[in-house]
Computed example of a mutant assay.
Amino acid sequence: MTTISADIRANRVTRSLLGYGVLAGPFYVVVSLAQALTRDGFELTRHSWSLLSNGSLGWIQITNFLLTGLMVLAAAVGLSRAVPQSPWTGRLVGVFGASMLAAGVLRADPALGFPAGTPDGMGTVSWHGIGHLAAGAIGFLCVAAAAWVLARHQSPGLALYSRVSGTVFLLAFAGIASGNGAPGFTVGFIAGVLVIFTWLAVVSIRLYRSLPCR
């Protein structure tokens, strides 16, 4: 009876951690979009959400990065506990969470006319701007890899979904990383972000429901 009770308590903790995998994406997207649609000079088809860290209201996006990163880290621990046979899934998602924390600390450089009054073009690249880009690249590659790694431990349907999600996100990231400023690449990356955060939520919900808590 003691062992069963301990297992149930452990499952409840794991379920709580996985809950953050459901919350992280909607929180990040809603806060980012709310700013993108209301801040002067910001264009969804031209500017990356990272640029929102600049200006007098930049603290909102910085806080968004930090809180979302913490939620993703919590979900990563939950994944490690829920799928012990796939330790690299949690580790890779954890790197993604850490990269969001780094992206919040290392602010992206003003560019492309944002914030309002910034000269058009890429502008000067600072050390923290380079760090922001590097953190993002590492995190994006890791979360895409996590989707593929976890696919090996899922049912055929969910495995296919994970592989497709990871691939779509990787292609979206490759498009934006190419430096092509075409609106399609910017919007495509936004779509990729929605896809990978939806994947994290779906997987978290699936694992959450698989753990008995009573």
Rank of each mutant, 00 (worst) to 15 (best):
A134M: 13
G69F: 02
A151V: 02
G113C: 08
A144K: 01
G139L: 04
T68D: 06
T63D: 12
V143E: 02
P87I: 14
V77S: 10
L112C: 11
S99L: 08
A74P: 00
V105D: 05
W49T: 05
G94F: 03
P119T: 11
T124R: 11
S53Y: 02
L52F: 10
S86A: 14
H153A: 14
L158N: 02
T63L: 15
I130C: 07
G104V: 04
V168G: 04
L70P: 00
L66F: 06
Q154D: 13
A75W: 01
G69P: 03
L150V: 15
V72F: 03
A102T: 01
L160M: 13
G78F: 08
I62T: 10
S99A: 15
G69Y: 03
V95R: 00
A74N: 06
Q85G: 15
G117E: 05
G136R: 09
S56E: 09
A144Y: 01
V95G: 01
S155E: 12
V83G: 05
I138M: 12
I138D: 03
L52G: 08
V125E: 11
L51F: 08
D109R: 02
G97D: 02
S80K: 07
G97T: 06
G90W: 00
A102P: 00
V125L: 15
S126H: 13
G166H: 01
L67P: 01
G104P: 00
G97L: 09
A135Q: 03
T68Y: 07
G90M: 05
G129D: 09
A135L: 07
R91V: 10
F96N: 11
W59N: 02
I62K: 04
L158G: 01
A137L: 15
S155C: 07
W49S: 11
Q154E: 15
F96M: 13
M100D: 01
A137H: 05
I60R: 05
G78C: 10
I62H: 00
S53G: 13
G55L: 05
L101V: 10
A146V: 10
L171Q: 06
P110G: 10
L141S: 12
P110D: 10
V77R: 07
G78V: 07
L67A: 14
L51T: 04
A147G: 14
Q154S: 14
D109N: 08
A159P: 00
V149A: 14
L52R: 01
L66C: 11
L158P: 00
G55R: 01
R163H: 05
A102E: 00
R91E: 01
A144N: 03
F140E: 03
L112N: 15
R152I: 12
H128M: 13
H128R: 13
T124F: 12
M71V: 11
S162Y: 01
G131Y: 01
V93M: 06
V105M: 13
V164A: 11
L70W: 06
I138V: 15
S86L: 06
G78P: 04
L170Y: 07
A116Q: 14
G55M: 02
G129F: 09
V83E: 12
A108C: 09
A116L: 15
S162N: 09
P84K: 09
G78I: 07
A144P: 00
I130G: 05
V105W: 03
F169M: 05
A102V: 08
L150F: 09
S56G: 13
L160Q: 03
H153R: 08
H132A: 10
V125C: 11
H128I: 13
A108V: 12
L133K: 03
I62R: 06
V72E: 04
D109S: 10
G113E: 02
